[in-house]
Write a protein that binds this DNA or RNA. Structure first.
Lengths: 220, 220
DNA sequence: AGGGGGATTTTGATTAGTCAAAATAATTAA
DNA sequence: TTAATTATTTTGACTAATCAAAATCCCCCT
């Protein structure tokens, strides 16, 4: 069995791989994502390479092997199903489930996981709109665009928020910017580094580009 | 925060203290309950004593301090609420929830725990009839007697099963001997080391004394 | 009183995961 | 091309938790 630590490294490596264009994740990035010093990441990755879970190019970085990716996806499936479960069944807020799931993802058996999956009706996304890998380790690829890059006056649906920070999510929640909600892009100002959006029945809201990059939308 | 290992030692120490009349739990017993060699238990208990969670009498044994007991009860509360949750909400079998809860008890936050408690209507016992400590760390004391010592021809209610072995529980389940069920004590034979009981509408069933000791009943 | 024998404690080693800080390599700037 | 900067790797040390096996203690029996 992979230890909790190993599960976390694999998950983080997967997430980092998604984020950047390079396929090799540099040790420094992995280390800061894991909250450890770089040397620790190096030695851990070497151990993971020995177990065949990652392939490691010294001085360049590491990437998951097929096996490592399957394990990572399995952890991610647990994480995301747990998040949705906490929201739907236990009534927690979507801004607070990430941290809870961070612990539970390592403690839940396949048996319990499949019960949860069934109870929720085999959902495909979690409360933040992140896709839930299947038990076989498949992830559905969506093509979403950052709100920051949406066309002015377009009508878009908020589909995914790629930042788990609780305070950011609470802000979005208060602003009504939840996955599923339709918004129209009011105006965009490159120089002001801002984009302004409007939800029906609310007054327009202006977001900085950095924030708007973290909100993925679907053009309708 | 107490590590998972520490939580397990405290829990086990509490359970051992309940089982035996002596208040000090000998290292050998603790070690075998924890599945470690005796030397490991000794050194762990010394560390726990240093943190003020147990008091340790070399060569005699250890017992929980007030603080240690509170922690142990908190772990036990998580364990038992999770067990009931798994049965009631996710539909697992009462014979299989113990092992699941063994992991989850260390991963669940107070926030989630209290949601579960509320959802279940603040229950007082888990699926095996074990009492659930309150959030403040109080356990209701019941006075139950082992089925093995019930009077012949008495009508009794099965209240608690003090063995978490999955196969034993499956056996009981198939025999209809679940907490809450009424049985009448048919006959008892000291020499045969057996007791025979009857559930309405079923044929009588004979149990060995050892098994009957693990079933606690309430006289009605 | 002297041994046995069982439980307990000690000692020395091991593994996983970590950090601090020195050494090395690679990249950028001058 | 050399020097400076930055990222990475190495080295040595530490902690928590464990085991194996030797040492110790204590009770009981003759």
């Amino acid at each position: 069995m992979a230890s909790i630590t190993v599960e976390n490294y694999l998950k983080q490596l997967y997430l980092e791989q998604q984020n950047r264009s390079e396929e090799l994740v540099p040790m420094g990035k992995l280390a800061s994502a894991m909250g450890v010093v770089p040397g620790t990441a190096t030695s851990m990755v070497k151990a993971l390479a020995d177990s065949g879970l990652v392939s490691y190019e010294p001085r360049f970085g590491a990437k998951l092997t097929k096996g490592g990716e399957q394990l990572a996806l399995h952890v991610l499936r647990r994480h995301r199903l747990v998040e949705l479960f906490l929201v739907k069944v236990l009534g927690l807020d979507w801004s607070e489930v990430h941290d809870e799931a961070e612990e539970l993802e390592h403690a839940i058996s396949d048996k319990v996981l499949e019960k949860i999956d069934k109870l929720l009706g085999h959902p495909s996304v979690d409360p933040h709109g992140d896709p839930i890998p299947t038990a076989k380790g498949k992830v559905s690829e969506e093509r979403l665009v950052p709100l920051a890059e949406a066309n002015v006056s377009a009508k878009v649906r908020i589909s995914r928020v790629v930042d788990q920070d609780s305070r950011f999510l609470q802000f979005l929640d208060r602003a009504g910017l939840r996955p599923g909600v339709m918004v129209s892009v009011h105006q965009r100002d490159e120089h002001a580094d801002a984009i302004s959006v409007k939800i029906d029945g609310r007054s327009p809201l202006t977001l900085g580009t950095a924030a708007a990059m973290k909100i993925l939308v679907e053009e309708v």
